[in-house]
């Protein structure tokens, strides 16, 4: 049960953060969109502020919780590159990722978000099942 509580609290913080961004700036907390706009040079100061805050997350965790968050990567580097390419291309084509569609979109009861989340969850399950089949 202990693994569920930090996940629940962490999730609630993410919800609170998305709520703040909407109430203050009127913006959807969608990381792929924000990073994409920053890369295009759109609204640089605000989007860079968002990325800087994200980067501070593991450091804040270190200050509050002691150790560093676990980051265990078992996927070989060439596959990480392919994964990055697919995530960048796919989030652009699908107009969002886990945060924009998953958190904000679902909470807004957007039909597009439900379709997107169903699609990326199914595809993710399929990808991991195939990886496991190759012993990865």
């Amino acid at each position: 049960m202990t693994a569920y509580l930090p996940s629940l609290f962490g999730g609630m913080l993410i919800g609170l953060s998305a709520l703040l961004l909407l109430a203050l700036n009127g913006r959807v907390a969608g990381v792929s969109g924000i990073v994409g706009r920053l890369a295009q040079g759109v609204n640089v100061a605000v989007n860079a502020g968002f990325v800087a805050g994200l980067l501070s997350g593991p450091v804040l965790y270190h200050m509050f919780a002691g150790g560093w968050p676990a980051v265990t990567v078992t996927t070989p580097l060439p596959l990480i590159a392919i994964a990055g390419l697919l995530v960048g291309f796919g989030t652009r084509m699908g107009s969002g990722c886990t945060s924009g569609h998953g958190v904000v979109g679902l909470a807004r009861l957007s039909p597009r978000a439900f379709a997107a989340v169903a699609s990326f969850l199914l595809a993710g399950v399929l990808a991991v099942t195939i990886l496991r089949g190759f012993g990865l």
Binding site: P58, V71, M93, G96, A116, S119, A127
Partner: peptide, 27 residues
């Protein structure tokens, strides 16, 4: 929307990273 999200999901499964966490752990 559906195809793009599926491509994203495949990448998410292969790497275990989605955009938010991938950017956050850069630090």
């Amino acid at each position: 929307l559906v195809l793009g999200s599926a491509l994203f999901g495949i990448g998410w499964g292969i790497g275990g990273f989605c955009p938010g966490p991938a950017v956050a752990v850069l630090s």
